[in-house]
Each structure stands twice: as C-alpha cells, then as structure tokens.
C-alpha cells in the first residue's frame, strides 16, 4: 500500500476514526501495532515468573494467595495481548515457544531477580504502576477498538496490583528498623530501573509512528513524568529517599542523578558516580539481557515438551 494510504489513515485517525479489524490496517499501522502488542504481551508474560519466584517469600498464606492472584492476572493479560496478535496473523505459539530468551521484548527490569518480599511489593508499587501509566494511556487513546476493550479488564486488575504494592510499602515503612532499610534498598535500584523503562527522551526519540497512528497518546517523557508524579510523593510520604524532586520553576520532576547511567545487576547498584552514558550503551545492556532472562523464559515453558508428548 502506498504512502498516500498511510497518510489518509493517519488523517482519519486524527479525526477520531477507530479501527475494528486487521483488514482495515495499512502495512505501516500493522507493523506499529504488532510491535506495541508484542512488547505488551512479553512484559505481562515475563512479570509472571519474576513474581512467581518472589512469591515464595510471602510472609503468610493470605499474602501468598494475593501474590498468586496477581501472577494469574499477569498470565491472563499476556494471553489477551497474544490473542489480539493472532488475529493479525502472528502466531502466539511461535512468540511464546519459538524465540530465544533474549528475543523477548519486555523491559530490562523483568530480567532482574526479585529476592525478597520487599522487592516484590516495590515491584508492584513501581513496575505495575509503570504498566498502568503505559496501558492506561493506550486505553484512553488507542485507535484499535479490540485493544481498547481488552484493556478494561487489564487496567482494573493493574490497579489492584498497585494497591497491593502501596499497602505493603506503607506497612514496611511504618515498621522501621530492618524493614525500612530493606525497603529503601529496593527503592534505590528499582526507582532508576523504572525511570529507564520509559525509554528514550523525546528529544532523541526516533519517529515510530505510534503517536501518528494514535496507538498511544503520551510521549515517553510525559509518561515518565506521570509515573514520577505519583511515585515521588508516595515515597516521600513514607520517608523514603528517591533520586528525583519536583522543580517548582520548571513545573516538572527532575532527576538528581546522571541519566541514563550504568547498572551493575549483580550488585543491584546504579553507578551514579561514573556519570552519564549514551543511550546506545543502554540499548547494548538491554539487548544483552539481565541475569534472570533465561531462567524466567525457561520457567514459563519448561514442561511443554514433556506434557505434549504424553498427549500426542
């Protein structure tokens, strides 16, 4: 299809047009939404093993149950996004079982181990909140009808995950002593991790078409600000230190560390002292994947071969 068809579609979308089926997509639109949905599906899928391994640290049966309820939600969210891709002729089977672990498109944050209960609840407070910022924006703005409807359920459940994170962060913060110290250590590595998750700043952003086709409404920097506008006050209210503050004059949140910068995944430590690095260096780190990448992918699909062979 021609460039003219792409421009015509963008023009109709600007006027509020909603697409209802893959047949109505131009090649450019199709490419862009496939990338968006793959990232979305992979992120949901990889959050499940990350949370699952961490749920072992639940302090009681009740908390074990709520942690697993969240994991079940994430698997359903992944399934819904992969199912939408199937309707566009992309094989869920191939995406889940046919790729190398490093080929998944989830953010680097879900390649990291969550080693204790505090890390799991801060993941709910930070990562799930990032999910709400990103998917809530898609829900409000997307020009693809089936995705808009699918996100009703997802948004509702992500809000529950976030609440779980906030309630537990508050409890740990009030406890003081070792609990609060542990919570602060989580915030120290997970805050910058989520900031980086939102990707390239707008002034460096290559043109992706996601905004033109109205697959989302806010830019990376706007989403990063949105995330900080609820995360920073939450942490400050709990007496936790975060490397960002609100700048009254600029009327926006400002980071207090070199961004982007290098990360040591073994030590779970950001190398603020080494100064700013290039985004190319960040992409190289992302592409190299983090310490849990293979284990997480493996844990999602390890029994498939065996069980299928019994059934066939």
């Amino acid at each position: 299809m021609s460039q003219r068809a792409e421009e015509q579609l963008k023009e109709r979308i600007r006027k509020g047009h909603i697409l209802e089926s893959p047949e109505e997509m131009t090649p450019g639109y199709r490419r862009a939404i496939i990338i968006q949905l793959t990232v979305q599906a992979d992120t949901e899928l990889m959050s499940a093993p990350a949370y699952w391994l961490a749920a072992r640290h639940a302090p009681s049966t009740n908390t074990q149950v709520s942690a697993h309820a969240i994991i079940q939600d994430e698997l359903a969210h992944a399934n819904i996004a992969y199912r939408l891709l199937e309707d566009m002729g992309v094989s869920k089977e191939k995406l889940v079982y046919g790729r190398e672990p490093h080929e998944f498109k989830h953010p680097y944050g879900f390649d990291q181990p969550l080693d204790n209960w505090a890390e799991l609840v801060v993941a709910n407070g930070f990562f799930d909140r990032a999910g709400i910022c990103l998917l809530g924006d898609v829900h409000r703005n997307t020009s693809y009808g089936p995705l808009k409807r699918a996100l009703v359920k997802v948004d509702m459940e992500e809000t529950f995950h976030l609440r779980h994170g906030e309630v537990w962060m508050r409890r740990l913060a009030r406890a003081g002593g070792a609990a609060t110290e542990l919570l602060q250590r989580c915030v120290d590595w997970m805050f910058p991790m989520t900031i980086e998750w939102f990707g390239l700043p707008d002034d460096l952003k290559r043109h992706s078409g996601q905004l033109d086709y109205r697959l989302k409404g806010l830019t990376n920097d706007e989403l990063r600000q949105l995330w900080m506008s609820s995360t920073v006050p939450l942490c400050e209210g709990l007496g936790l230190k975060v490397p960002a503050h609100y700048d009254e004059a600029a009327e926006e949140y400002v980071l207090d560390y070199p961004f982007p910068c290098e990360y040591d995944p073994e030590a779970k430590h950001w190398l603020f002292g080494d100064g700013e690095i290039t985004w190319d260096a960040v992409f190289t780190r992302w592409k190299g994947r983090g310490p849990m990448n293979e284990r997480y992918v493996e844990s999602v699909r390890r029994s498939r071969g065996t069980v299928s062979s019994w059934l066939n």
């Binding site: 359903a76 399934n79 819904i80 199912r83 409807r149 009703v152 359920k153 509702m156």
Partner: peptide
C-alpha cells in the same frame, strides 16, 4: 463481548474463560 480464549474444546473453553475474565 468481553474477550476471547483459545481452547482445544468446549469444556476447557468454559474453564479458561471463567479463569481469564475473573475481573
């Protein structure tokens, strides 16, 4: 219409739908 599931038969489709759309 709230969504869709993949299933190898009607019985599993009922289970998957009930567990997937439990919001």
């Amino acid at each position: 219409h709230i969504g869709y599931v993949d299933a190898p038969g009607d019985e599993l489709a009922r289970v998957y739908a009930w567990k997937t759309y439990d919001e």
